[in-house]
Amino acid sequence: MFSFISWFIPSVPTWLTLETSPLDCALQGLVGACGISILCNLLRVYLFVEAQSYADGKDGPSNKRSHSGGLIHRIQFWILTLIIGLVGSRVASLVVLEFCLRAISTRLTAAQDPLTDSVLQLLVQCQFSLGCAFNCSLQFLHEGAPQAWLSLLLAAGLSWFLASQCSRLRRHVMSMYPIHSTQRYCGVCIGLLTSGPSILTFLCSALIITFSVASIAAVSSINRHFLSTSEALRFWTPLTICYTLLIIYMQEEQRRQPSGQALLNTVVVRLGGLLVLMLTVGRWADVLHILLCFTGEAACLLPAQDLLESAYKGAADVPRHVTRNEPQRRQKKLEKHD
């Protein structure tokens, strides 16, 4: 009887099924979304502290901006959790490798620029790639584990705790830092006053480690889909040529139009090129996951317009000698308040 009824129910296509269990996908998506939240909150803290310090150095009012989009950030968090959990390891690996290639090319071509000119822009752009890095890394590290969900649950709990602490730090700094840093009311704000620039260095170091592990996982995840070396070459050759040309184009475009709109345009070009490539040598599941990546990139970049504006305009507003002499000036400020 049941077999007769199931004959009328269409089966789910294999390219719509998940690579792992729904629980594992949900936990991986949660870890990726928490990583993006930590990155954005620490970037906002860094930019606010730098803007406040520069305004104090000029003895003028700081450019304070309200960050009241709490509901928007919560919606963004759960959308990213869903999208990162649904994106397959193959497409997530391609996104990670593309960002690593773009980051290396950006640092090589902008070697003479200060850290805050190019690296800060790169940190804003890597949000969704960071989520994909956690996705493919966790899937690679837990492949074949009998109780992988327990380890993923521990990772999700730790990520949730760190994300909540960074969110509390951002809210505290936005509201109380101008008072606490001058009146010396709390150790957190005094610590940010003396070592605020180290946040950017810490983020860079953490992302280098994260994407290094993710690159190894990405190459392994992609190569296991090929049965022979010829199939691997047939995939890697057009991928390498396509993304080399795309990166050259995107860098030239951002030099001509250094703005957030140019960044959004390069996202469309980058994922559009990957979509065409997957229509040629990929699978239907890859095409569906790339369409999800469009939504994920939009969910990361559209609510981060303040970060985009600071990344493209902050370096032009703050003179280079201010950043270079920032630690000495902060120490003098503390001595003046003693």
Rank of each mutant, 00 (worst) to 15 (best):
G35M: 00
I36N: 05
I36S: 09
S37M: 08
S37E: 05
C40K: 09
L42D: 00
L42Q: 08
L42S: 06
L42A: 03
L43M: 03
R44A: 04
V45L: 02
L47Q: 09
F48H: 02
A51W: 01
S53T: 09
Y54C: 09
Y54H: 06
D56E: 10
D59H: 10
D59I: 03
S68P: 02
S68I: 07
G69E: 02
L71P: 04
I72A: 15
H73I: 09
H73E: 14
R74M: 11
R74A: 12
I75Q: 03
Q76K: 04
Q76L: 06
W78E: 06
L82Y: 09
G85E: 04
V87R: 00
G88K: 04
G88L: 02
S89K: 07
S89H: 06
R90S: 10
S93I: 06
L94A: 06
V95Y: 02
V96R: 01
L97A: 02
L97V: 01
E98S: 11
F99W: 05
C100T: 13
C100N: 00
L101P: 05
A103K: 10
I104Y: 15
I104P: 08
S105D: 12
T106I: 00
L108V: 10
L108P: 03
T109I: 11
T109W: 02
A110M: 11
A111K: 06
D113M: 12
D113R: 15
V119A: 04
V119D: 00
V119H: 08
L120K: 05
L120H: 02
V124E: 11
V124F: 13
V124S: 13
C126D: 09
F128R: 05
S129Y: 09
S129D: 07
S129E: 14
S129T: 08
L130K: 05
G131D: 08
G131C: 06
G131E: 12
A133I: 02
A133H: 04
F134S: 04
N135E: 15
S137E: 14
L138G: 02
F140G: 08
F140E: 08
L141Q: 01
H142D: 13
A145H: 12
P146Y: 10
Q147S: 15
L150F: 12
L150D: 08
S151C: 14
S151M: 12
L152Q: 14
L154H: 09
A155Y: 14
A155I: 12
